[in-house]
Amino acid sequence: MEYNLTINDRTDPVHVDITGDNSFEAARNQDAFEVSFARISDHKIAIQVNGQTFNAHVTRTDDGKIVMIEGRTFTVRDADLAERRKTSGKGMASAETEVTPPMPAVVILVAVSPGDQVEKGDAVVTVSAMKMETTLTAPYPGEVTSVNVAEGDKVMPGEILVDIRGQA
């Protein structure tokens, strides 16, 4: 997966490979990180990186996450998420009104085409993250106006996979 992460106003590309249950490798500029982690609670994650352990506290905001580590506060934003939202022509992405994956995933199946009529709850796209498959459904009845992804695409939270024009 490729991220563009903005931390306290500086943006860098980050390459991430998931290597197993609760572990990944990340590379940013010249730095490589081998990471394993455990979620302790809603806001607390224990992280081991290159053999060193630290605790991070995370909260989600409207446009990113606030991360606190050892008394220091960081604002971390997914720069592409802002881009994806811009192209979707809307402000905030949400599972309530948009077809978007809840986490980084790969598209397995696209069940609709432009022009199709869908009912609320109809399957539109199936995605897979690691060993988990899930079906994203139409959030409201309407007409599919565009399909923005193809099978095999890597997709990110906030990305609008299918545009549906609601019934008047």
């Binding site: 980050v14 996450k65 991360v67 580590i69």
Partner: peptide, 18 residues
């Protein structure tokens, strides 16, 4: 200082949402 750790925490939080 520490912004790489914040980056990794962000990714971990993405991969295992609360």
């Amino acid at each position: 200082a520490g912004d790489a750790m914040a980056m990794l925490a962000f990714i971990a939080d993405e991969l295992a949402p609360p």
